[in-house]
C-alpha cells in the first residue's frame, strides 16, 4: 500500500498513531493569522494538539511553520511590528491573556532551537539555568534536577564526570541534547523543537529521535522539521503548511499514506518544496 503513496518506502517508516489518554485540544489554535509588519506570515490556522503527543510541522522553507512554533511561547514578541488575529489557547487559556506573564508562559512551554545554543557556562549551570532564574537556590534540588534532566536527555553517562566543564567543549549532538536537558529541567508541559536535528549527523539525529519518543511520555511535543522521514518517524500527527496556510493536518499515518490534499502528496513525494 505504501508503494503508490510513498516514493521511497524503504526509507520512510510510518509509526502508527497511538492514542493516549489526555486532552485532545491541549493546545488549540483558532483562526490564527500573523503578520510581520505588512507581510502576512500565517493565515487561517486552526488545529488542536493533543496532550502528550508529538506533532510535526512540515512544509517548504518560508511556509510559516517556524513562525507558528515560535508563537506558541511568544518568542516573536520582541520582533518589531508583529500583529496577530485569532487565538492560541493552552489548556483553555489564551496565551495572549493580558493577565498572563509571558515569562510564566515560557516556563510552561520550553523550546529547543535549530542551532544548539548552550550558554558559555558549565554543563551543570546550563542545565539548571531555568531553575536558577526561577529562584531555586537549594543545591540538592539543583543537583537532582540536573541529573534527572541529563538522564532524560540521554546525556548523563557521557557528561556525569565533567559537569563543571564548559558546555562548549561538547560535540554538536551532545550540545543539542544538552539544550533539550536544559529545556526540560524545570519540567515544562510542552516542548517546542525547531528543526532540532538539522545540524546533526545521522547518529546524533537518531539519538535525538529516540529521545523524543521517550519524552512524549511526559511532554507534549511540537516539532518543526524539514525531514519528512523524521516527521514520519517521530510524530503522531503532522501538519503540512504551504505559503502561510495550513494545507492539511491529520495523523501522521494518514498524511504520509493517504494525504487528502494533492499539494501534500506532491510535497511529501518530493515533487516540490
Amino acid at each position: 500500500m505504501t508503494a503508490t503513496m510513498n516514493p521511497n518506502p524503504s526509507r520512510i517508516q510510518v509509526r502508527p498513531a497511538t492514542e493516549r489518554d489526555g486532552r485532545r485540544d491541549y493546545i488549540s489554535i483558532r483562526d490564527y493569522g500573523f503578520w510581520y509588519g505588512q507581510k502576512q506570515a500565517l493565515e487561517g490556522i486552526s488545529l488542536d494538539i493533543p496532550e502528550r503527543q508529538v506533532v510535526a510541522f512540515i512544509g517548504p522553507s518560508g511556509c510559516g511553520k517556524s513562525t507558528l512554533l515560535r508563537n506558541l511561547n511568544r518568542m516573536n514578541d520582541l520582533v518589531d511590528g508583529i500583529r496577530h488575529v485569532g487565538d492560541i489557547t493552552i489548556k483553555g487559556r489564551s496565551i495572549y491573556d493580558p493577565g498572563l506573564e509571558v515569562i510564566s508562559l515560557r516556563r510552561r512551554v520550553g523550546m529547543v532551537f535549530q542551532k544548539s545554543n548552550p550558554f558559555p557556562k558549565s554543563i551543570y549551570e546550563n542545565v539548571v539555568f531555568a531553575l536558577r532564574v526561577m529562584g531555586v537556590r537549594d543545591r540538592s534540588i539543583l543537583d537532582e534536577a540536573c541529573e534527572t534532566s541529563l538522564r532524560k536527555a540521554a546525556l548523563w553517562d557521557e557528561v556525569k564526570d565533567r559537569l563543571q566543564d564548559s558546555a562548549l567543549g561538547l560535540s554538536g549532538g551532545q550540545m543539542q541534547r544538552l539544550c533539550i536537558a536544559r529545556a526540560i529541567a524545570n519540567r515544562p508541559e510542552i516542548l517546542l523543537m525547531d528543526e532540532p536535528c538539522s545540524a546533526l549527523d545521522p547518529i546524533a539525529t537518531g539519538k535525538i529521535e529516540e529521545l523524543i519518543h521517550e519524552l512524549k511520555e511526559q511532554f507534549t511535543i511540537v516539532i518543526v522539521t524539514h525531514s519528512m522521514q523524521q516527521a514520519a518517524r517521530v510524530s503522531d500527527r503532522t501538519a503540512f503548511f504551504y505559503l502561510g496556510k495550513q494545507i492539511e493536518y491529520d495523523t501522521t499515518e494518514k498524511i504520509f499514506m493517504n494525504p487528502s490534499q494533492a499539494q501534500t502528496e506532491a510535497y511529501i513525494s518530493g515533487r516540490f518544496g
Binding site: 511561547n73 518568542m75 520582541l78 515569562i103 510564566s104 515560557r106 516556563r107 520550553g110 523550546m111 532551537f113 542551532k115 545554543n117 550558554f119 558559555p120 557556562k121 539555568f129 531555568a130 536558577r132 532564574v133 526561577m134 539544550c179 536544559r182 529545556a183 524545570n186
Partner: peptide
C-alpha cells in the same frame, strides 16, 4: 548572539535575568 538571548528567554528568564546571567558574562 541572539540565539543565546532567545535560549535564555525561552527558558523563562526575564529580560533582566537574561542580561545579567547570559549577556553580560558572554
Amino acid at each position: 548572539p541572539q540565539s543565546l538571548i532567545s535560549g535564555s528567554l525561552a527558558l523563562g528568564a526575564s529580560r533582566w535575568q537574561t542580561v545579567w546571567s547570559v549577556v553580560i558574562p558572554t
